[in-house]
Amino acid sequence: MITVTDLRKVYQQGDRTVVALDGVSLHVDAGQIHGIIGHSGAGKSTLVRCLTLLDRPTSGSVAVNNQELANVSDSDLRTARRRIGMVFQHANLMDSRTTAQNVAFPLELIGTPKAKIAEKVNALLELVGLTQFADAYPAQLSGGQRQRVGIARALSSDPDVLLCDEPTSALDPKTTDEILELIKSVRDRLNLTVLIITHEMNVVKQACDSVSLLEAGRIVEHGAIATVVADPAGRLSQALLPMPGKLPVDLPAGVVLDLLYSGSQATEPVISSIARTFNVDVNVLAGSVETLGEHQFAHLRIQLPEGSDITAITNHLLANGVAVTPKEAK
């Protein structure tokens, strides 16, 4: 597990003071995959550099399995870093080394015996499915394969935490799926704590158990996927289950409602239940239905005819665990 407490990073740029991280706190349990999402400029890169201790945070702490990393002496820093394995956006492999030699790199640093290295490298290459590419150089590999090597390399020092910085941002959608599946499978096998820093909502949808929204150096929303999605006013919810923004111009008169429901409700026929109970025609204008983690979520925009008993219908929906947001019909 990893615990970040009130992490601050302040830069001095000439006369200007730049607060890149303004008190970031987060906690991720072992075996969980946590996404940190944010636009460029939100402080993602600074957060990564502080978590890996490439930059020292101005204040605050980073602890892996209750062992403090951020406030250690320079000499202990190298040992501390080994508890966090890191996967980079562009893999950052050494071009002069073969796949096997790249994976061996962290082991060479601490003088691991050759036989032990070979054994471990073989096991890791098998884990990421690259055994037949052991002697290939990075230039001979595809982007996805390079990222697999990067993951194997990050795992070779037996870290407790796997920190992935935009791991799929340079990859095509199919390869992205494969890499995320790989990250999930190594999490399962090694009971790793995984942090994925990304700007892609898709990555959060596909791989994360919980998520934080980073904005201007602060975490403005966070929680388990099911929790954040269930809040219709939340920005993460709107980003995870987006609704086409504009209503059609030629919309007939009526009342427009946004419905958000999750889990068991999503499998129940909410729409037809309104239609039957209140004897109204329900028009679905827009919506998205997705499975996030283990739950299914639906975000629907419906229109009811003028004169419907909106209060009764709303109460009926609320009683069924559906969040209702009335929309202005243009």
Binding site: L54, R78, I84, F88, N92, M94, P106, I110, R153, S157
Partner: peptide, 22 residues
């Protein structure tokens, strides 16, 4: 690239190791 140097540092390299191995 600085990315390679960062990667080596994150993996726990000393500065000498970064110079000689990267």
């Amino acid at each position: 690239s600085t990315g390679k140097i960062d990667a080596a540092l994150v993996m726990g390299s000393t500065k000498m190791q970064v110079t000689r191995k990267v």
